[in-house]
Design a binder for these strands. Structure first.
Lengths: 340, 340
DNA sequence: ATAATTCAGTCAAACGTTTGACTTTACCAA
DNA sequence: TTGGTAAAGTCAAACGTTTGACTGAATTAT
């Protein structure tokens, strides 16, 4: 590998001059510049990144901490981050926290989470990253951890602490949009299969649904709201309850595609036609939603966009460390298929 | 940040001694060692990775080039790679090639692929990675590219050129196992919905199926083999053809879960019961397979294991560059559900 | 004509390690 | 005593850049 010294010798200048040509840090005569450029070309020179980083204190590397890369939205976000960073000449060190598998004892789990996050942060810091993007939803564990972070930090997907920069998607607005979509197609008796009762997305989405109904003077009866646990099976259970109601709802809004799938399974077993007898919509646009009978109308999570925005924010923060924290909430789009 | 010089001063020794304590590169008196260790603790010293790498020429960083992180098996492989590398103190620079979206013009596509791969490799090399793992299936483009690679290289998932180290899964054996599974459950008239006719997995899996049948003296009639294109829709089309056959097959082996899903859709429309009237099996264990009616028996791709093995191989290659290339083919397991 | 300024480029220290060559002291054998 | 060896550390160059301070010449202002 050719070094700066080699180029200096070849062009008959000092290494300082070569450095200035390479980085454009000083005005030089056209002839010298030309000579250096020729030498660089001839020797096929590329600056040594390590030396550069050691001297300048900047690595042009972002650490990306993900809770589990196998989680669907995570991969999309990482993809967006990577694309945007690459374009600006940044690299990405990815570290997977493996937070997907659950431990039985809740206290052990929290301890284990925190330790893994600690290790991950330590690894990234030892890599001299210029900034860190945290991708995930476990904000609970993060507050205490990132408190004394001197490295710029951006949360993607989750919120982190309120004083941090984050990028997320709009739970409330999306649910509101989807509900309006149902209303516009003539539905007034809209039931909901919600997620875990005390979870953040459940609360926000529920709020969005109520807002949309309220705006047209409708209200959702308590028995039309069933809380599941985000799993297929709970879609089955709760749908059965909803179908026993009188009057029966004309549309079911499941807060994710898995529960919507369970719901549609029951419906088809009962001999009910979707969308003629009853409409169903989901949330997430998971792969399964395309292959349901009929294909499910659902909400597309803007994963790539979240990644892109997070990458933009972290670069911004690096270049301007004193800037106030930014909050970006990205809109979801409705994927219109045949279940309404 | 405390440096080695600080520690040296604190412990009253030279930086050389500190270095030797930290790395265990020289025998030192217990007292000195102790003093240095105390100083390190006190000053909360961690060695600067950049300086270390610059001096030693090793970064303890592996570049991982993926065709598209959003592809299902890819995330699993990356997860395995990351876990294994982390345990050995290696970091991972991930670069996504974004090869998922297809271009219309085939020549443009190949050119674009090659350029992206070139850029990716250049990025990783400029990061001074100790080795590269390529995760993907587009071996076609790689032969010419990686030819003059001085950096250790391992292919995961795809084969690469025959003279390279690779880790992949067993197409043939898995298909053979699954076919035996069907045979053992009494099936003799087994039909196949294959993938693209000229693709490598199709050929190997087909071969495995024939082998299994042959071993029990059975043979698969030509009309029982239908070639699809890996998509849901082709599962529908080809199943209709298969059902029109006389005698009708008692089992259908779809070469992926998507086509199996299409198949099962037709079956249920026709009023045929799975598995009573006809058995169906798939391949890949995609999310959808769990939620079909009935849940689909399928083949689990050993993604994590592939990643683990690839990580092990790249570290081996780094420590022993002259070792001969290794080839590892990992077995798939059958996920037994209710479709047989 | 002199001083001040600009221009083009160089010098050398610094970033924080590693490591082969060296020094010093102690110990042992002949 | 002499020579040799082992043990415990140190020295200083090297890895390949960047960059503030400097120099010498040319140009401009007074």
């Amino acid at each position: 590998m050719a070094t700066m010294r080699d180029i200096a010798l070849l062009a008959g200048v000092s290494t300082a001059t070569v450095s200035h040509v390479v980085n454009g840090t000083k005005k030089l005569s056209p002839e010298t510049t030309e000579r250096v450029l020729m030498a660089i070309q001839e020797a096929n020179y590329t600056p040594n990144t390590l030396a550069k980083s050691l001297r300048s204190g900047q690595t042009h590397t972002i650490g990306v901490l993900v809770e589990d890369i196998r989680g669907l939205p995570v991969a999309g976000i990482v993809s967006g981050i990577n694309e945007t960073l690459s374009k600006s000449g940044y690299r990405m060190i990815l570290h997977d926290l493996h937070l997907l598998e659950k431990l039985y004892n809740q206290y052990e789990q929290i301890a284990s989470y925190r330790q893994r996050i600690n290790n991950g942060v330590a690894l990234l810091k030892s890599s001299n990253v210029d900034g860190i993007i945290y991708v995930g939803m476990h904000d609970r564990h993060l507050d205490y951890l990132f408190d004394p972070m001197e490295t710029p930090l951006v949360f993607a997907y989750s919120h982190g602490t309120s004083q941090d920069t984050y990028v997320t998607y709009s739970n409330q607005d999306s649910a509101q949009d989807m509900t309006r979509y149902l209303i516009n197609r003539g539905h007034e008796r809209i039931a909901v299969i919600a997620g875990h009762p005390h979870s953040y997305p459940t609360a926000r989405r529920m709020h969005g649904i109520r807002m949309a109904l309220q705006q047209v003077g409708l209200i959702i009866p308590d028995e039309y709201v069933r809380y599941g646990n985000w799993e297929y099976e709970s879609g089955i259970t709760e749908t059965k309850v909803l179908l026993s109601l009188d009057p029966r709802p004309t549309a079911i809004f499941a807060m994710n595609d898995l529960m919507a799938a369970g719901c549609m399974h029951v419906l088809s077993e009962m001999g009910l036609n979707v969308p003629k007898d009853i409409a169903v919509v989901g949330f997430d646009n998971r792969e399964i939603s395309r292959y349901l009978q009929p294909p499910l109308t659902t909400v597309q999570l803007p994963t790539t966009e979240i990644g892109t925005a997070a990458a933009l924010h972290i670069m911004e923060k690096i270049n301007n460390p004193s800037a106030p924290p930014a909050r970006e909430i990205i809109h979801c789009s409705i994927i219109e298929r045949e279940s309404v």
